[in-house]
Design a protein around this nucleic acid. Structure first.
Lengths: 224, 224
DNA sequence: TAGATTGTTAATCGATTAACAATC
DNA sequence: TAGATTGTTAATCGATTAACAATC
């Protein structure tokens, strides 16, 4: 199915399409044009059609797109039907909050195991997920299929644990540590959740808005 | 200071620079070149110099950049020294997990109030933040400076609460609801934390990697 | 001074938008 | 059929990279 190299920008938009299509389905909408979809997502119809055309022909001239059918296609493109396995590394506040509030299953992932160093946690279950000792991590990786490690360890442990994971064949890390894991020549796939990056971007946009307002009222002042 | 319109891509990289500079400071590094910074972040030196040049001249020929000085500049560009006020709207699992684990103060924000509908929460304190009734939200906004609303309400409430917020002058929303808040002509600044979008992007990259491997071993098979 | 590295201009590359024939 | 809307090709726009004079 996938032929040409698809750009990051396109890939980042796919989950948004999926979410919007789910929302449309909930609201009983079963058909949509690229124009209308663009309206609702703040994108141009051209861009939407270009994006989809990277993966195939999912629409119909004069009609638009069938919402459930398109949803199925995008889910498949994203790998939601591959039954990926994930493990949680670090069952502290962040790890627990994540498992409490986020449904891995809803997005096609099985959370199969968790790992921590705290003796009182080891051997217990959390939301049905068994918690093992960090000492068993490497063994577990070698004897089970693990597609993604969800990294929720404390800051100090981020680099050494990442090293252990990658040296033992883990190819993808979902990183919640707010530590920069970028390594010059590493082939590991890293996806970051950086709350602070997100808030600081917002902070920039708010600052910009305030500056514009200030400049505007300064001009008005001058004119009066 | 800010003259030309700065692109989104640049703005999204600024928090990463900040984080890396903090990390360098912790490790006692006080000076860095665009080349070395690029190495550590997976960017070209050219790009880094271009990015900084949107805001001023922060380096020195033949020397590079002074880490703490550059950190101060970027913090200021991002608005970290403006003392922004934020309110938390919705004190459920996600809201509580956020306040438990994320330090607003570290990034220059004051969390001044929280709002919920649950009677048992109203009037209590959470990490020193007073929880008020949703009924008092509009009043509060009008009588206090609020720069950002942190939206942590349940899915169903996302759209109506957003409407209430924007109609009463809130200009920026940090959105944790996983609901698409994009409105065709809204001037509201929205920054999203979409866990599922992030995981699904990762899912795509892992799928791609697996497909490549499969294709490779199929070719090897054929040749043998 | 010689070497290093910046800030900036120009060149390249890639992504978005526009346009339109194909067709449901 | 007539109208609508796709998929795709070409045109435009913007972002990244390369190159280099300026200078610490």
């Amino acid at each position: 199915m996938k032929r040409v190299k698809v750009s990051n920008n396109v890939i980042r938009r796919l989950p948004r399409y999926l979410r919007k299509l789910d929302e449309l389905t909930e609201n009983g909408v079963s058909r949509i044009s690229s124009f209308e979809l663009g309206q609702q997502l703040g994108l141009t119809p051209s861009q939407i059609r270009q994006d989809f055309s990277c993966f195939g022909e999912f629409g119909q001239q004069g009609y638009g797109y069938n919402v459930p059918a398109l949803r199925t296609q995008i889910a498949s493109i994203l790998g939601m039907d591959r039954g990926f396995n994930a493990i949680l590394v670090g069952v502290g506040n962040i790890g627990r909050a994540l498992v409490d509030n986020f449904s891995f299953a809803e997005w096609g992932f099985n959370l199969t195991a968790a790992f921590d160093i705290k003796p009182e946690l080891i051997g217990t279950n959390f939301h049905g997920v068994p918690i093992y000792s960090n000492d068993e991590l490497v063994d577990y990786i070698h004897s089970n299929r693990v597609d993604v490690a969800v990294l929720c360890v404390p800051k100090e442990a981020a680099i050494p644990v990442t090293k252990a994971l990658t040296e033992n064949g883990i190819e993808a890390i979902w990183n919640f540590t707010n530590v920069e894991l970028t390594e010059p020549n590493s082939p590991t796939i890293v996806e970051n959740i950086h709350f602070s990056d997100s808030l600081l971007s917002l902070s920039y946009y708010v600052s910009e808005r305030l500056d514009e307002k200030a400049a505007k009222s300064a001009r008005a002042e001058k004119q009066a």
